[in-house]
Amino acid sequence: MPGLGTDRSGERQVRKQPKPKKRSGAASRRNVPAKKTAKTGRRPLSGAVFYLASGHGGPDPGAIGRYGRFLLPEDEYAYDVTIRLSELLKQQGATVYMMVRDPNDGIRNEAVLKLDKDERAYPNQPIPLNQTARLRQTTTAVNRLYARHKGAYQRLITIHVDSRSRGENIDVFFYHHSSSAVGRRLATHIHRRFQTNYRRYQPNRPYSGTVSTRNTLYVVKNSHPPTVFIELGNIQNRQDQRRFVIASNRQALANWMAQGILDDFRSR
């Protein structure tokens, strides 16, 4: 698995702008194979339930970064990482609900992801433009499903891309509610995997991403399952943009999240 920002083939993709194409989860299956336990035949995440919510969508693209003459919409990149993570978790036996779905977009490997507005909210609802209405729509759906799966290991992971000044290079950050020890534990497990993988793949680059509380975030405050809110980087910063435009880096983000999630499930 490549380190973030190191894939030379990804650089060629950026220059050539290959023709967009839809992909299945084949690449992610090669990266994190689903294994069954020897004694039970169950896959490692059997019985776990995950709600994955990529930021924004529909009429709201979220933050917009500029990449030469191209625009980088937050919702498209957050969605691509989220659907990659969804595939990995399902291959491990988990039940996964994508709280935002795009009927036309699977996993995509082009560098610049086309902005569209046809995403739908679970189960198949139009996404409102109003931010509070949109966030309430997500948490209401998650909380209803949470009640349906009462007693199961359930987690909500919401994935966003930050927007800061162009000169600010940031790492991946993880937020949880201060009263949720379980949410903190999940965030910490994923964070540790990021620390480990940065040491392995980019030993000369310190990793400064942190785990912290953010009680004011709507989904963190109002969702019933333990929740982790993830910021993938600064979509305005040239260096951080490599984390998004290079497809293998988006896959690495999903892989490392999946590793941390599996660590958390095993430690429950």
Rank of each mutant, 00 (worst) to 15 (best):
K19H: 10
P123L: 12
W256Y: 01
V219Y: 10
Y122T: 02
E74A: 00
S165M: 08
R120W: 13
M98R: 15
F50A: 07
P73R: 03
R66V: 12
V245D: 04
N143D: 02
T132I: 12
N124F: 11
V112W: 00
R243S: 09
I230Q: 01
Y146M: 07
R214V: 10
V142H: 01
A27T: 13
L85Q: 04
F265M: 00
T37Q: 10
S267C: 04
R136E: 15
G5T: 00
Q13W: 03
R192T: 15
K114W: 04
D162A: 10
A252Y: 08
R29P: 08
H189A: 15
G65C: 09
K16A: 02
I230D: 00
T210R: 03
Q91E: 15
A258W: 01
G25M: 12
G65M: 04
N124K: 14
Q17W: 03
Q137V: 11
D105M: 06
E87G: 14
A94I: 06
G167D: 15
K36T: 05
A94Y: 03
R69G: 01
F174H: 14
I127C: 07
T95Q: 12
K117L: 08
E11K: 12
A111E: 06
A34I: 00
N124D: 15
R84F: 11
G151P: 01
Q241G: 09
F70K: 06
D171A: 06
I230N: 03
L72T: 03
H160N: 13
A141I: 08
R205Q: 13
M257T: 01
L89F: 07
L135A: 12
D118N: 14
R15H: 05
Q195W: 09
L232R: 07
T158W: 05
V211P: 03
S180D: 09
I230V: 13
L72V: 06
S165N: 10
E87M: 10
Q236V: 00
